[in-house]
């Protein structure tokens, strides 16, 4: 069973990098470039981990966390927030809403790999 990860990120470059990296780590990676698309995806299928940027078009990262954690079906799905340095206030809000972890840009890709592995329950292949 391969773990499914959803990445929500509006910067093309970052999205591509994360997608490549996690796919290489052996996950099934789905992507969304904005919050609205992400919410649709989350409703339609279940994921083992969601990585989301905080500043997103249409629907912000905070709302994604609140939707995921507020729904009994998805509330156990771990959510990792991505944020720029300096948005600590918002990150704090995200934690209050139930976010599980956060990563500040710029970040170390190897570190990201490790964190993802920790949060995904099923081991990757």
């Amino acid at each position: 069973m391969i773990s499914k990860i959803l990445i929500v990120e509006d910067e093309v470059l970052m999205l591509k990098a994360l997608e490549f990296r996690l796919r290489k780590d052996g996950y099934e990676v789905h992507t969304a470039a904005d919050g609205a698309v992400a919410l649709d995806l989350i409703q339609a299928q279940s994921f083992d981990l969601i990585i989301t940027d905080i500043m997103l078009p249409f629907v912000g990262g905070l709302e994604i966390v609140s939707k995921v954690k507020g729904n009994p079906q998805t509330k156990d799905t771990p959510v990792i927030m991505l944020s720029a340095v300096g948005l600590e206030n918002i990150v704090l809000e995200a934690f209050q809403l139930g976010a599980d972890d956060f990563i500040t840009k710029p970040f170390n890709l190897s570190e990201l790999s490790i964190r993802v592995r920790k949060h995904v329950k099923q081991p990757s292949i």
Binding site: L13, A17, K105, P106, F107, N108, L109, S110, E111
Partner: peptide, 15 residues
């Protein structure tokens, strides 16, 4: 431009 942009987003070995 692309090199700079990538460099700004990552630290560690990638950077």
């Amino acid at each position: 431009k692309e090199l700079l942009e990538y460099h700004a987003n990552f630290i560690g070995k990638t950077a």
